[in-house]
Amino acid sequence: MLNNKAIFGFIAAAVTLPAFAETQCQNHPAAEQIPPAKFQEQLKAEGYQIRTFKKTDGNCYEIYGKNKEGKRVEIYFDTKTGKPVKSEVK
């Protein structure tokens, strides 16, 4: 049987794990980045429905929404090239 310290340690590790798993993108100077509003418009023109759009601490643009097939997606993009760095279709 686990004691309270072991349970607390397990919970603390599980809670902090996502912070270590964040996707990292190259840090581009602001003048070289695609402006967020312009990039969102490009994505919408490609058929994405964006529920959430943000710039991550890891220097990526991240979206939550649906792709043109209507499937839920979470995608990280390079801020300069607009190319996907990591994606998950749900």
Rank of each mutant, 00 (worst) to 15 (best):
G58I: 08
C60T: 03
T23C: 03
E74K: 14
K54G: 00
I11Y: 00
L43M: 15
P18L: 08
V73G: 09
Q42C: 00
A13Q: 04
A14H: 01
E41Q: 14
G82A: 03
T79S: 11
F53P: 02
A30S: 14
I11N: 02
A19V: 06
L2C: 04
E22Q: 12
V85W: 03
F20V: 13
G9F: 05
F77W: 05
E46W: 08
E74N: 14
A14D: 00
K54D: 08
K5S: 05
K44C: 04
N59M: 03
E22C: 02
P18G: 08
F8S: 04
F53I: 03
N27G: 00
K5G: 00
K44L: 07
E41G: 05
G47W: 08
A13H: 02
Q33Y: 06
Q33S: 11
T23Y: 09
Y61A: 07
A30D: 13
G47P: 09
N67G: 02
I7H: 02
V15D: 04
K80L: 09
A37R: 12
K66Y: 12
K80F: 10
L17H: 05
K44S: 10
K71S: 13
E46L: 08
L17E: 09
C25E: 09
P18C: 06
Q33A: 10
G47T: 05
L17P: 01
K38W: 02
M1R: 12
P29E: 15
A14C: 14
R72M: 07
E32S: 14
Y76E: 10
Y48H: 05
R51P: 00
P36N: 01
K44R: 15
T16V: 15
K86M: 07
C25D: 11
A12Y: 05
A45W: 06
A14N: 09
V89T: 15
Q24P: 00
L43S: 11
I34W: 08
E88F: 15
E46R: 14
I63P: 13
Q40L: 05
Y48L: 03
A12D: 02
V15Y: 11
K44D: 06
Q24R: 09
I50W: 01
E69K: 07
T56F: 07
